[in-house]
Amino acid sequence: MKILLIAESREGKLLGSCYELMAFAEKMAAETAMVLVGSDSALPRFAGKLYLADATAVGEYNPDAHKQLILDVVAKEQADMVVFSHSSYGWDLAPRIAFAMKAAQISEVVDVVDGTMVVPVCNAKLRRDVTVKTAKTVVTLQAGAFGLAEEPTAAPTVEPIRVEAGGKVRFTGYEQAEIGGVDLGKAKIIVSAGRGIGKPENVAMIAALAKALGGEYGASRPVVDSEWVEHNRQVGTTGQTVAPKLYIACGISGAIQHLAGMKKSEFIVAVNTDKDAPIGDVADVLVVADLKQFVPLLTEKIQAL
């Protein structure tokens, strides 16, 4: 079995997720080659052949060109499987490659058990084992699901690849994340509000608990999307990644995108009415309670200490 790993680069930098692709291939005990649209000044450590296209020539986002580059290498390497990260790059490109290869695509793989791919369903509340009926497979991997025991040290054998830069989609540049006054990355204590707070007025009780503890308050995506809390306080994949000494998740069910942004916190407390919420998997303490009762009580008691 030959697996083609698709690494990513953003703003000229190689993304570390390429090592997760390698870990997956190791688990599959497969031969590998890698494709990167990036730069020869930011190469992955990889004991194998790296097909490298120059991102300044084709653009970091150019689905038509990237698709053609990858398909050329798939043909050359006779790859049985193509593996991406389940990222904004991977989920955009993977179905295009799967379609061209007449392959099944398995999205957001979290594990491989005896060769069977496992994916999450319904906000990770359930899982399913997937079997494919096609000769070739395209796979995207959930961020953080696979890790290498030790990072490789070898330098890859680089083979430059080229394609006409044209394409129907025109990428004109990046817009940086809003710079806010709050750097949650520096906070030692973070209390975060999730959908479970119910209404915007309840942000105040989360902020009050954070203040009583001498920390900052944050929020999960739905709360930010509802404009109850500004974006610069969002914790998760598309917000900030934090690792405070204490993280208190209030009314946050624990979508993978949120967990990815906070699971490295030293001590995690979850307050949730649902005992089975996925946040329980990463919490050191799960308080099964209605946060609207519990949070003000806790705040009062902490203030009284």
């Binding site: 392959a103 099944a104 695509q105 398995i106 069977t116 999450p120 369903v121 990770a124 509340k125 359930l126 899982r127 399913r128 084992d129 997937v130 079997t131 494919v132 009926k133 096609t134 995690i268 005992k275 329980g280 998997d281 990463v282 919490a283 050191d284 303490v285 799960l286 308080v287 099964v288 309670a289």
Partner: peptide
């Protein structure tokens, strides 16, 4: 169809976290 679900199930609880009720 190019793929099918062989099995659906609940993930094993990983956390040995304390549950307070």
């Amino acid at each position: 169809a190019r793929q099918e679900t062989a099995k659906m199930y609940f993930p094993e609880k990983k956390g040995g976290g304390l549950v307070l009720e």
